[in-house]
């Protein structure tokens, strides 16, 4: 390569092979990073499916309809776990939806900038509380001081206390995602409303919230999915009853609660027929539920997305 010769005819415009090789190496590193996360996900699903299949072949399918969830006795009423999970999620959403949405409306539409600067990080601190702390709080504070005060017949472990704690846990999620959606609503929309003589609450509830509805619904769905997957609070505060109940004052195993119990006590149940494998079966059902909710939230966002 004649470096001194710069006449156009002989100028070398091909790339430096070393540099090209380096580019390719860097590209492969990033590719690997993205592929590994997919591979791990797929591996998890495959192991879930495999073990769940093992479980289903070991038991009689009728066992899934036996009364209650008692894996060591061969009674695998998955429906009880699902129902308990939904009861907890419903209570949690009854707490988190109004609180989270209210906080989001306040932060986005009412709070002055300096108020928001203080309030928003404080809300995020709430999100940073370990769920084991909230679970303990549910068991030792919410149950005796709140639930038992209102309903003296409530059991020591009950869905109400656990649901409230899960609700507190997901308030920051609802608030933060909803607030982002509302702040994305253009100022022009608010001006149009104020220009028509609307008060602030009219503008917030009848213009901004409807305009941000896709983001708000997505926030709610994500929150439900988080509530369904929450483990530590329900393991501590919801109890270990395997008999299906709909009463918020009773306690019972949720899907995650049952899995935690099985996983922690696995050494003791290793000998039982299919108790250990049932963990994977419950996990698979749980995975499909949260997966379906995430897909649903994606759909909702796309379906209702406004171009403003």
């Amino acid at each position: 390569m004649a470096l001194t010769d710069t006449s156009p005819q002989t100028m070398d415009l091909t790339g430096d092979p070393k540099r090209l090789a380096r580019e390719a190496r860097v590209r492969r590193v990033f590719l690997a990073a993205s592929v590994i996360s997919i591979v791990v996900s797929v591996a998890i699903i495959l192991s879930l499916v495999g073990e769940a299949w093992n479980f289903l072949t070991k038991i009689e399918l009728g066992d899934l309809n036996e009364n209650g969830w008692f894996p060591r006795r061969g009674r695998f009423q998955i429906l009880a776990l699902i129902v308990h999970t939904l009861v907890i999620s419903a209570i949690a959403m009854a707490v988190a939806a109004p609180l989270g949405l209210g906080a989001a409306i306040y932060l986005s539409e009412y709070a002055r900038p300096n108020v928001r600067r203080v309030l928003k990080p404080s809300l995020e601190v709430l999100a940073g509380i370990p769920s084991v702390v909230l679970g303990f709080f549910a068991l030792t504070f919410i149950t005796p001081n709140v639930v038992k005060n209102l309903f003296s017949s409530a059991s020591q472990s009950n869905f109400l206390a656990a649901g409230i704690a899960v609700g507190v846990l997901i308030v920051p999620l609802v608030a933060s995602v909803s607030e982002d959606a509302m702040r994305a609503v253009p100022t022009a929309m608010r001006e149009a409303s104020y220009g028509l003589g609307a008060k602030r609450w009219h503008t917030s509830l009848r213009v901004v919230v409807p305009a941000a509805i896709s983001g708000i619904v997505a926030a709610m769905i994500l929150a439900v999915s988080r509530a369904i997957g929450e483990t530590m609070i329900v393991a501590l505060a919801a109890g270990t009853n395997g008999i299906m109940t709909l009463s918020p004052l009773d306690g019972g195993l949720t899907m995650t609660g049952a899995m935690a119990q099985l996983a922690i006590g696995s050494d003791q149940v290793a000998g039982a027929v299919a108790a250990f494998q049932s963990l994977f079966f419950v996990g698979l059902v749980l995975f499909f539920m949260t997966f379906a909710l995430n897909v649903l939230s994606e759909r909702v966002v796309r379906r209702f997305r406004n171009k403003y």
């Binding site: 253009p186 022009a188 929309m189 149009a192 409807p210 305009a211 403003y308």
Partner: peptide
Amino acid sequence: FQKPNPFP
């Protein structure tokens, strides 16, 4: 306003 701003 400057830019048409109908509500959604």
